[in-house]
Design a protein around this nucleic acid. Sequence first.
DNA 1: ATGTTC
Length: 445
Amino acid sequence: MGIYYNFPAENNMQCPVKLFCSREIYQEIEEEALNQLLTAATLPGIAAVVGMPDLHQGYGLPIGGVMASEPGGPISPGAVGFDINCGVRLIRTGLSGKELEGQEDEILKRLRQRIPAGLGQSSKLKFSSREFNQIIGEGIPALDKMGIIDSFLPENCEDGGSFPGADPAAISSKAQERGITQLNTLGSGNHFLEIQQIAWAEEESEFFKGEIVIMLHTGSRGFGHQICQDYLKLAEQRRQKYNLNFPVKNLAYLPSESPEGKDYLAAMGCAANFAYANRELLTARLKEIWSDLFPGSRLRLFYDHTHNIARWEEHLIDEKQQKVLIHRKGATRLAPGNPALIPGSMGTSSYVVSSEDSKNTLLALKSGAHGAGRSMSRTQAKKTISREQHRSSLGRVKAVSSSGGSMLDESPLAYKNISLVIDSLQQSELARPLARMNPLLVLKG
DNA sequence: ATGTTC
């Protein structure tokens, strides 16, 4: 029986809250993050709330929080997050570490040249308003039709790279303005591009030890951010009309069956498509770099998935199969047969995991952790970590920041130990590791 | 996370 912590429904809670983590991690979880999780359970129409081992304080719903709403219940932009479809993609190169030796500096140089990264950065790619709407309406298949990407593998991408129900009519002009120049950019903060090497792989996995893979972590940039902002404001404006009661400002919501709630879902779908397309376009840049440096090699998508999204799914709740609106914020979907990608902090290992077929996966709403999870805030990290401590924590990993910043707020010292998170997923019988990767080269915003 | 305070 896998471990989890159960918090029974009391006071205004509509449902119990389950926290899936080891005892070791439980002791480190911030009180405020747990409070935020319990508060989410007080929203009217909530069917289930679950926390992942990388839980930490966020905006409204904590990062690592999963929230299920009944039909007609709330849809909350803050419970999806500002970076809609923030997600991770893993690309196989087929090369071994030996084949990369001596090229490290050249790779980093070209990544910096070809991958626009950093706050407010825009892309050299120009899209017309019509093209942009096609991309946000359809996702990666639209890029394929435009002939600007090559050999996309939809079966290796969540939603096939095309989120259902996306509708550009639900987007503000401001969101479109911000987004149109930001497709094909990496962003800042915890977004990164890493060249990694397989350090360990389970025999049944398709990876080989020493294999070079590329991990990409980015989302919907200013576009998703603007959509979240627009709909948080709309939710506030509709408070009286729908008699809504927000326990905290950042858990503002709309009734999922209202026109405004449906509009948010349609707009959120556009941001989801933007982010899928963004990761695919950056992959096209990687393919260009790779074919220059390693002629004859071929980059192949292993998997791409989101950890900030809301979607309708069937779940077992109170021992009944029910259709619920799942919000995952800093949490992955754990679907049988599909892998999940769990990056560590910069300079530490990342993992590919596979879902377990256990009772707990159902109780955890088929969800898993999305990363190491912060152990201190950005401000705290900048204040307490010295440059020297940070540098030695990176070991031999070569990391560059496009902005030339210190990256102290992204230091491994500001994050939990990823191996504790992976241990925790195993102890809870949610997932088991398929492969562990070590970073060699890191590009940050 | 974010043209970092509508």
